[in-house]
Structures are given as C-alpha cells and as structure tokens.
Amino acid sequence: MKVSTALCSAALGVGLGTLLLPGAALADTVVSPATTPVGGTVVLTATTCNPKSGDVIFRVTGPNRDENVRSTTAAAGGGLSAELFTAGFTLGTYTVAATCGDGSSAGSATFTVTPIGGAPAGSGGDNRDGRDAGALAAGGTLLGTAAAGAVVLFRRRRPVSTVA
C-alpha cells in the first residue's frame, strides 16, 4: 500500500532551517497505509521525533473527529509511532499533525477511510435463473393457438352421426 507523507515545510525552508539550527533534523509524519477500509488500523509515525524528548502527540482531524493520540512507542525505523483504529470513523480524508515531545512540529500527513471492498452493483440480469420469461410466454401462446386449431380441425373432420 502506498505510503502518504507530507513534509512539514518546503525543501528550501527546511534547508534554511537546518542551516540556522544545526541540531534540527528533517521532520515528517507518515501514515501507513494511506487508505484503509473503515474499521481498519493505520500506523502513525513521527519519524524524526526523539523518543528521549518525550511523548509525541498526533492530532487527528477530519469529518467527524478532532482527537489527540499520544505515543510513547519508539518506531523501528526511528521516531515514535502509534496505531489508530478507525472503527466508527465517518468515511473521508483525515489529517494527522504530529508534535514532538520537545514541542516542535513534526509535520502532517493525510489518510482516507474508505468503504469496505467493492460495490454490489448487479442482480444477474433479467434471466439469471436460465429462463427467458418472454420466450416462454410467447411459446405458450403459440402452443395454445395450435391446440385450439387442432380442436377445430378434429371437429370439422369428424363424420356426421345420424340418429336412428
């Protein structure tokens, strides 16, 4: 699944910031996966926050939500991460903004909560049971007409009986 990432500032700005603050590193936030069916789990990671600086706060805002998720868990690839369970989320796109324990911004990213699976958009058509009602009705009508004609023929050809 594609990973969505948003840098906290433009490349030029980051470059200048790095020059002005030699101790600062490129900060960003990653949400993986970037789309999840409702009820799925996404992992929020502030890749450049230093776990020794304290907890990271992920602020999650979107269609029906404005909540903070706190993380004290060091991520395998660096920074801190937290899992977010999307049960009860209104479908749509959410923004995650992270703040490191030292108060610095760790940027933001988005993720989208989607419907589950595909769409049930078909019934199998007008003769899904293998029967064409129109042809059956027309055939029945023709057979009925043929039967009526046979009766007429039979009566016309029957010899006239005489009364003794």
Partner: peptide, 12 residues
C-alpha cells in the same frame, strides 16, 4: 404454430 411454440419454449 406448434413447432414454433415448442421452439420458443425450448429457447425460454
């Protein structure tokens, strides 16, 4: 008519 009717019913 009979043949046609039977044919349509078979198709149906």
């Amino acid at each position: 008519l009979a043949v046609s009717g039977l044919g349509l019913i078979t198709v149906g």
